[in-house]
Design a protein around this nucleic acid. Structure first.
Lengths: 382, 382
DNA sequence: TTGTACGCGTTATCAA
DNA sequence: TTGATAACGCGTACAA
C-alpha cells in the first residue's frame, strides 16, 4: 500500500509474477526481488534459452514467440543483469575517464565531448575525479578495471609516479592520455600548448616587454613542460634573458593566481606583463591587479589561457590562448574507439589539438627605455 | 599455451607472475587473461574458500596462511571481479548521478560535493549527462540499475514525463532529486530559489523599477516554478502589475540570454531592470546590453543567479542571488547515505539550501515618474 | 526452432 | 581453521 507499484501491475497485466514483491505479513520493508530470465521464461511459457535469444536479436525465433517473450519482459520490467552478462564475457560498453577535478570547466567540456562521441557508438562514459592524488588515481584505475570498463581516458597528475604507472601497466584495456604523456598509455591527445605559448610570449616580447611574469602549474606534466619550454624559446629567439624570480610554476588554482600576482607586482622590478596559463588563474589575477590599483593594459599587459567568458567579457577584454576542449575530448574518445576496433593497439598515436591566440585589449606596447626611473607614470599622462 | 598464466607462475615464482603476458611464438596479440581466485589459490597452495576469507578480512585465518595468500594476490595482481561479486549480492558501493549537462558549473560543483562525501563513506560516484532528453534519462536510469548502483542522484528535466516516472518507479534503490520535485523519489534537495528571487525582485521594485524583465528557463521544473511564483508574489506585494511581455521563460542557455535581452531592450517600453536567472545567461545578457550601448546600471539594472566569477569581476560587478552548489551536492549524497543505512526509506524528506542576495553595483534607483518622455537621459545628466 | 545443461568467478554453507 | 561444493543470472553448445 505504501507502494502502488505492485497493485498497479496486478490490475493491468496478466500476471505480475515474480517482480511483485512479497510483502511480509506486517508492514515490513517492501523488499522486491529483481526479475530474472527464469521469471520471464515462466511468464512467457518458454525456456530461458529462448528468452536469451530474443533479447540478443537472434533471427531464429518465430514471431509469435518473440512477441510473447517481449510482452513478458515488458510486464516484468526485466533487464538482464550486467553482472551476469559480464561474467559470460559480454562487453560492458563502458569507458572510464579520470582527471583531477570536474570543476575545472576544461575537463567538463572534454567530458561532454567524449560522452557525445561515445554515445554515438553505444558506449557510456563514467567519470571520477582523483583530486590529483596518486593513491586515488591508482584506486580508480583498479576500480574501473573491476567494473570491466573497456577503455580509459586519463589525465594523470604526475606523469612519473611509479605506483600509478604500475596500476596502468596491469590493466589490459586501451588507455588514452589526455593532455599528458605516458609510456603506459596507448595514445595521447593534447592541445598544442607549445605553439600557443610561444606565440603569446613572442607577441609580448615584440611589444617591447622585457620582464614577463609566468604563472602556471603542472610541473610534472607535459603541459607544464611545453609551456615553460615555449616561454624559454621565445626569450632565446629574441635574445632576452630570463629572470628566474618571474617564474611562478606551482599551481593552477585561483588563490595561487591571486597571491603570486601580488608578489610579482610587489617586486623591486615588477614585470610589465604577465602570462597566466591555467583556467582558474584569471579569477585570481584580476582581483590582485585591481587591489594594487594597477590598470590593464596601461601598467600591466596580460595574456591568459584558456579562453573563458570572463576573459571575453572583462573590462578590458583579456587576450587569450584558446583551444577547443570539447574537440579534444571527442578526439580522445574517437581514438579509443579505434583502438577497440582493431585487436592490436595503434600504440604511440599522438594527436594534437590546435591552439590559437585571441588578441583583445589587455596588452600594450612598452617604451624600450629601462623602467628604472619613471617620473611621468603618475597618472598615465599620454 | 595460449594463456601462459600457469607457466609464468611456475617459472618466475615470486616475480611478476601471472600478470605478465606471454607473447605467443609469432608477434601475435599478447592477449592476457585476468587472474581469478583459482589462480590465486593454486599459487598460494590453498583452496579458493580460503582466498575468499582472506580478502573478506575474516578472522578465522591463521597468520601464515593469510600471508601466503596475500603474497600470491600481490604477485598475480588479482582483484576480485565486480561482476562475480555482484552476482553473489555484494554491494557495489556505487551511486549514480544524472543531470542534463556537466558543462553547467553548478552541476560540476554538485558532483564534486557529492563525490567528496561519498568517498568518505567508501562509495564511488558515477555520473552521466542526459542532454535533457527524457529518453536518455530513462535509458540511463535503466543502465544504472543494471550496473547495480545502490542509489541515484537525479536532476530530472521534465518532472511530469510519464516514461521517466515509470523508469524511476521500477528501480528499487533510493533516489534523491536535485533541484527538482518528484513523487517517485525518496527525498529532494533544493536551493531556496523562492526566497532568493523574492528578495531580488522586491529589491528592484523598491528601487522604483516598475518593468522588470525575467529571463529564465525550466518551466517544467520546481526551480522554474518557484522563481516565477516569487516574481509574481513580489509584484503583488508591491501592488505592481506584471506585463506578460517581460516574461521570457524558455531556456537557460547563453544564446537565449543574448537574444531575449536584445528583444526586451527593443520593446516600445523596455524594462528598466532585468532578472536573469540561470547560470549561463549572464554571458549572453552582457554582450547584448553592450551591443545596444546600454550602460549598467544607468540605463538598466541587472540581477543574476547564480553567482559566478564573471558576475564578481565584470565592470560593474553584477548583483547576484547566490547559493552553494557544492553544499547542495554534499547534502544530497548525505541523504542518500542515510537512506541506505536505514532499511526503510526516510521518504518525503526535503532539504533546502539557503540562498543569499549579494548586492554589488549593477542596480540603480529609478525615478518614480513614468518613462514615457525622457528628455534628460541623453548623457546621464549630472 | 526450441529446450537442457554447463560454466563464468565469486560467496556462503557444510563437513571434515 | 580449512576444503569442497552449491548457488547467483546469464550465454551457448548440444540435444531434441
Amino acid at each position: 500500500m505504501a507502494r502502488g507499484i505492485a497493485a498497479d501491475d496486478m490490475t493491468t497485466g496478466t500476471a505480475t509474477g515474480v517482480a511483485a514483491d512479497t510483502t511480509t505479513a506486517a508492514g515490513e520493508a517492501p523488499t522486491r526481488r529483481r526479475a530474472t530470465v527464469k521469471d520471464v521464461a515462466r511468464e512467457a511459457g518458454v525456456s530461458i534459452g529462448t528468452v536469451s535469444r530474443v533479447i540478443r536479436q537472434e533471427s531464429s525465433v518465430t514471431a509469435d514467440i518473440r512477441e510473447k517473450v517481449e510482452a513478458a519482459i515488458l510486464r516484468l520490467g526485466w533487464q538482464p543483469s550486467m553482472a551476469a552478462q559480464s561474467m559470460r564475457g559480454v562487453r560492458s560498453r563502458t569507458i572510464g575517464f579520470i582527471f583531477a577535478d570536474i570543476r575545472n570547466p576544461l575537463y567538463a567540456e572534454m567530458v561532454k565531448g567524449a560522452e557525445d562521441l561515445l554515445s554515438e557508438h553505444g558506449y557510456m562514459l563514467i567519470v571520477a575525479s582523483s583530486d590529483g592524488r596518486p593513491e586515488r588515481e591508482q584506486a580508480l584505475i583498479d576500480r574501473f578495471s573491476r567494473w570491466n570498463v573497456e577503455g580509459l581516458l586519463f589525465s594523470i597528475e604526475d606523469e612519473s609516479h611509479p605506483q600509478v604507472a604500475r596500476a596502468l601497466a596491469r590493466v589490459d584495456f586501451p588507455k588514452v592520455m589526455i593532455e599528458r604523456a605516458h609510456d603506459n598509455a596507448d595514445a595521447r591527445v593534447c592541445a598544442d600548448h607549445y605553439r600557443g605559448t610561444l606565440h603569446a610570449a613572442e607577441y609580448l616580447l615584440d611589444l617591447g616587454h622585457r620582464r614577463i611574469g609566468l604563472i602556471s602549474g603542472g610541473r610534472r606534466t607535459w603541459v607544464g613542460r611545453s609551456r615553460l619550454q615555449a616561454y624559454r624559446d621565445a626569450h632565446a629567439s629574441r635574445g632576452v634573458p630570463i629572470d628566474q624570480r618571474l617564474l611562478r610554476l606551482d599551481s593552477f588554482s585561483q588563490s595561487y593566481g591571486f597571491r603570486e600576482t601580488q608578489l610579482l607586482l610587489g617586486l623591486d622590478e615588477p614585470p610589465s606583463a604577465i602570462l597566466a596559463l591555467g583556467m582558474r588563474l584569471l579569477a585570481g589575477v584580476l582581483p590582485a591587479v585591481r587591489s594594487r590599483r594597477c590598470v590593464i593594459p596601461r601598467d600591466l599587459s596580460l595574456v591568459v589561457s584558456n579562453d573563458s567568458e570572463l576573459a571575453q567579457l572583462a573590462t578590458p577584454a583579456i587576450s587569450a590562448i584558446r583551444y577547443d576542449p570539447y574537440a579534444l575530448g571527442r578526439e580522445a574518445a574517437q581514438l579509443l574507439m579505434k583502438n577497440l576496433g582493431h585487436g592490436e593497439r595503434l600504440s604511440g598515436t599522438r594527436l594534437e589539438i590546435p591552439t590559437e591566440f585571441v588578441m583583445r585589449e589587455s596588452c600594450a606596447r612598452i617604451a624600450p627605455n629601462p623602467p628604472a626611473a619613471r617620473p611621468d607614470e603618475q597618472q598615465g599622462g599620454r
